[in-house]
């Protein structure tokens, strides 16, 4: 039994290694002249979005009834994606700026 246990553990760990989710990534969205580019992105839970605001204007990335990231002029902001789903977001100051995120589990 004692001899079996290390092997069993090794097997468990091995299996565990296989199901560890892929490395979390940072997905960049650039804001230039009042537009998110790319406007639609796909990500997975654990990834981060980084919005890089190239405009000299303050923007936000605001999910209706949800998270909001403030993006000062010429600065960037990040959001950790914690739950799966499909989200539209806008800039609260310029509501005609529209983006979309699909978060896979």
């Amino acid at each position: 039994m004692n001899a079996v246990r290390p092997a069993f553990l090794a097997l468990l760990l091995g299996t565990a290694a296989l199901v560890v989710p892929a490395q979390a990534e940072t997905i960049e969205v650039t804001i230039d002249r009042l537009a998110y580019a790319p406007a639609a992105i796909e990500a997975k839970v654990g990834d981060e979005i980084e919005w890089i605001n190239k405009d000299a204007l303050v923007h936000t990335a605001t999910v209706n009834g949800g998270a909001e990231v403030l993006l000062p002029a010429k600065k960037s902001g990040r959001l950790l994606l914690q739950e799966p789903g499909s989200f539209d977001y806008i800039c609260r100051y310029h509501p005609n700026m529209k983006g979309h995120v699909t978060v896979r589990p």
């Binding site: 002249r33 009042l34 310029h94 509501p95």
Partner: peptide
């Protein structure tokens, strides 16, 4: 001016809304 135009078009839409 072109950046301004984009911005002010946004303002116009916002005002219309």
């Amino acid at each position: 001016l072109e950046t301004g135009l984009k911005l002010f078009q946004g303002h116009q839409q916002h005002a219309e809304h």
